[in-house]
Design a protein around this nucleic acid. Sequence first.
DNA 1: CAAACTGGTTTGATAATCAAACCTCTACTC
DNA 2: GAGTAGAGGTTTGATTATCAAACCAGTTTG
Lengths: 158, 158
Amino acid sequence: MTGTRIDPATLPGRPCSAASALEIVGDRWALLAVREVLLGNHRFSQIARGTGAPRDRLAARLKSLVEAGVLERRPSEEGGRYDGYHLTDAGRDLGPVIRALLTWGNRWAVTAPPVRILHHDHPLEPVTVCTTCGERVRADDLTREVTDPAWAEEGRAR
Amino acid sequence: MTGTRIDPATLPGRPCSAASALEIVGDRWALLAVREVLLGNHRFSQIARGTGAPRDRLAARLKSLVEAGVLERRPSEEGGRYDGYHLTDAGRDLGPVIRALLTWGNRWAVTAPPVRILHHDHPLEPVTVCTTCGERVRADDLTREVTDPAWAEEGRAR
DNA sequence: CAAACTGGTTTGATAATCAAACCTCTACTC
DNA sequence: GAGTAGAGGTTTGATTATCAAACCAGTTTG
């Protein structure tokens, strides 16, 4: 695990893991690159085609994703002559993020859904559930516990 | 609902709702702005403080989020003298996306989690479940059904 | 009426982005 | 072994976005 981690206090605004996450994968091409690897496209040219990203941007992003511990480079399993990009545990763990985006996009962002995710051959209808209590998660049941008391829920406590 | 929707085919790369979603909320500040509104910060200056975004960028982003149908402007409920930014249904529906990012960030992106989400006063332990079959969603149980046959799973068909 | 706060817009310097061309290395063809 | 065709980037030069800071107009507040 090489993953370079970020101290949220060094970022502008409210200290928040989502902001730190976006610092790593919040670039225009990063999540699409991870999506391609998730789909089984491990080679540079495949990822370039799949994302549509300019090659220099893609090269830079793949490099930073490797540094962040999201991807790693190793020989393709098919005895390939070139190294391929593969997901680390952290990278695989981005699956839920990408699926959440895709679900939202299908519902709100596109004219017509270009892809449907099947779960055991039926359309996936995802909801978030809390494993601790087994209950479906609703926004109203959530509260935030902030480490830094300077940042309360609403605005900054002066 | 004003939401300007995107035809995925007009974007570079593989037609994908996640890519379309990122076209709307994939900017550096967009999701953080939505997070602030989700936290109850409806005023421009509050969102500026909470996100740490430059004011001109924030103004531009809020405008595009309103155009996309993620936010809307209306008088603050507290009889405020200024209009506030409020979530539409589409905006509220970004909650799962932001929480997925936050969960990933807590686990992989930060040195120490600056915030913990409580669900009914216990720490939230989120998993995705398919409502159709009630089963917990694992990556291995998922397949993609693509509308455009030119884009298969791996790379582009020719 | 002055001071301060609101929600921005403008400005001017800096940095990121892009498409296209280029380069190196490996492999295959003839 | 010369020629061609990838793969995986890097370089280049023009364009665009980003940023911090200053500015401005319309409310309140004192």
